[in-house]
């Protein structure tokens, strides 16, 4: 049962990340992020149900509470709603190109997943594709809220992939990753607000005075 749930969850998460690439408003992006807690919790619950240990049930509940409720509420408070809807493209890559890249990544991930172990191969591959797509959002979307959602969705995909691979991350890694995602959301929100305060708009197209 566990491997079927893992595969379905990874597929749902990948779909949610695709939706986030296309999201036009900050509230929509945050809602997609909140829904992404479900597939992560499903994987943890499926692993717990198939003999993975009681702590995985706690993990599933915490994922729902922290990533489904708490972090989205933090983001809703901190991310600015832009005065117009639509896409802001950050770089030379466009969302269709990123989605095409995700398809290639998924195929590569599937191949890699099969090489790493047939039991979790496909789910692992889809998880890796979701990570690449999530972390790719800052390369295509210029609005800082979209980039924030992309980074956090990449983290969600990463946790799902790690769970699929290892079965159980152990209490230390779990607790620290929860702390990380909360703090990351807080700091991302704070910097987005600071950028908006300085430039009037939280968009990377208004940044560019520093040359790296």
């Amino acid at each position: 049962m566990s491997s079927g749930v893992e595969l379905a969850s990874a597929a749902v998460l990948l779909l949610l990340v695709v939706l986030a690439v296309m999201a036009r408003t900050a509230p929509a992006g945050v809602t997609v992020y909140a829904w992404a807690a479900l597939p992560q919790a499903a994987v943890a619950a499926a692993l717990a149900a198939s003999g993975g240990g009681a702590l995985l049930w706690v993990d599933a509940a915490l994922i729902l509470a922290v990533k489904g409720l708490w972090v989205p509420s933090l983001l809703r408070r901190s991310l600015p709603v832009p005065d117009r809807h639509g896409y802001g493209l950050a770089a030379s890559m466009s969302p269709p190109m990123l989605l095409g890249g995700a398809v290639v990544a998924a195929l590569l991930g599937l191949r890699l997943g099969v090489l790493l172990g047939p039991a979790a191969g496909e789910a692992l591959g889809l998880g890796l594709a979701a990570i690449l797509l999530g972390f790719g959002i800052p390369a295509v979307r210029s609005e800082l809220w979209a980039q924030t959602v992309g980074i956090l969705l990449g983290e969600a995909a990463l946790v799902l992939t790690a769970l699929v691979l290892a079965g159980d991350l152990g209490p230390t890694a779990e607790i620290l990753s929860f702390a990380e995602v909360i703090l990351l959301a807080v700091v991302l929100g704070a910097v987005v607000r600071a950028v908006r305060d300085v430039h009037g708009v939280a968009d990377v197209r208004r940044l560019g005075r520093l040359r790296g």
């Binding site: 800052p138 983290e155 790690a162 700091v187 950028v195 300085v198 940044l207 520093l210």
Partner: peptide, 29 residues
């Protein structure tokens, strides 16, 4: 310090934030 510093901070958090998460996955792998 504000001003250009917030732009530096954004670049810093995007690159190293993603990096940190990849380091976590790398450790698990």
């Amino acid at each position: 310090p504000g001003g250009r510093a917030v732009e530096a901070a954004w670049k810093y958090i995007v690159i190293t934030g993603i990096g940190g998460l990849l380091a976590l996955l790398g450790t698990v792998f």
